[in-house]
Amino acid sequence: MADAAFLALTVITIGSAIAALELRSLIYGSIALMGTLGGIAGFFFLLDAPFVALFQLAVYVGSIAVLILFTVMLVKRELIFKKIEDKRRKFAGIGLMLTIMVSLGAVFIDSGIKTMTTDEPATNFRDIGTDFVTYYWPALILMGLILAGSVTGALVLAKREDVENDQRVN
């Protein structure tokens, strides 16, 4: 059962990752990206990390995907369906992708992690919360600073500067 789930998730994740990059419409691309993110959340479930999985669903699918979708909708319709790319560049990119896939895959398969399995019980999600405020607390403060800085920066970036010219049409 778990194996079947793993296979299905692999297909969903990788397939929708390719689709996210290759679909002609950006909206469908965003939906496919949501599939990828959801599939990764499924992997997290399989890895007994439900907290991370639900965090992924709530944050990535619930808010980042919404933001992406919203931004895509703000872009002109012609651009949503426009495809700007170069054939040769594309083939080179596919070659690069295959090279990376094969070489890194070979490295991993040859390395010692091939036989790594475990039978130990999963980490309780409460340990994460404990970690946050005990061992990783400087990281938590840093995290707060990063988030605060990002929201500040994003707001400063995104505001209009042509207000006087544009807002009052008359």
Binding site: I31, M34, V61, G62, A65, V66
Partner: peptide
């Protein structure tokens, strides 16, 4: 919370 995050997406789509 994860589930109710889906409603806005479905609505806007």
């Amino acid at each position: 919370f994860a589930v109710i995050g889906f409603f806005p997406i479905i609505t806007i789509l």
